[in-house]
Design a protein around this nucleic acid. Sequence first.
DNA 1: GAGGAGATCGTCT
DNA 2: GACGATCTCCTCT
Length: 221
Amino acid sequence: MTHPNRSEERRAAKPIVRGFYNRDPRIVARELLGKVLIREEREGRLAARIVETEAYLGTDDAAAHSAAGKTARNAVLFGPPGFVYVYFIYGVHYCLNVSCLPDGTAGGVLIRALEPLEGIAMMARNREIELSESPRVPELRSLTSGPGRLAEAFGITRPRDNGKDVTSKAGDLWIGDDGYAVGEIVTGPRVGITKAMDHPLRFMIAGNTYVSGKRPAASGR
DNA sequence: GAGGAGATCGTCT
DNA sequence: GACGATCTCCTCT
């Protein structure tokens, strides 16, 4: 069963080395599941486990932003691995990606959903959501179950975060490994795209309540 | 409960 | 000038 762990009960997360990202986005997307996204704010730390990702393959992938070649907007995807690519979509939302593959080769992973661990009150404030006294899963889920939502919960914007290095604790936005063991992983088609839809490039932790999309099978009630 | 449309603006044609 | 790697709200059933 999935329930938020107390921070004391988890091992401290350690940053993931750059080499981890210097691989095919399909591998990186799969292996990022279970890792922890961390935002250091003056008021405290935000932390949430990555439970859903999508791989975008670069110039050969018609659905990827990098498909048409390098531009000012997508330059990070063509740069070295382990850096943040943030884009603004539909005039409303920011979405968080991490660059993959060596400098000069495009590729990236979109972070689609998180399971909140620490700083839940701050996430709710960022989302302008009022949490109840002891929030239940559906409320927590609404904080970070979707790329636009999680970006808002973590205060991620393009001006603030595009181009940041996620491999160093020195930054205020990084990804760590706390030793969490991921169980079964399921794949599916990517969401919200109109091209190259026949590739199972979406990865989720099987049975995890916090994946995006429609309400998952009832749990914890 | 399900389905559809509007929001709102940066980026590229 | 069109549209997008989304979310929310509203309407209809």
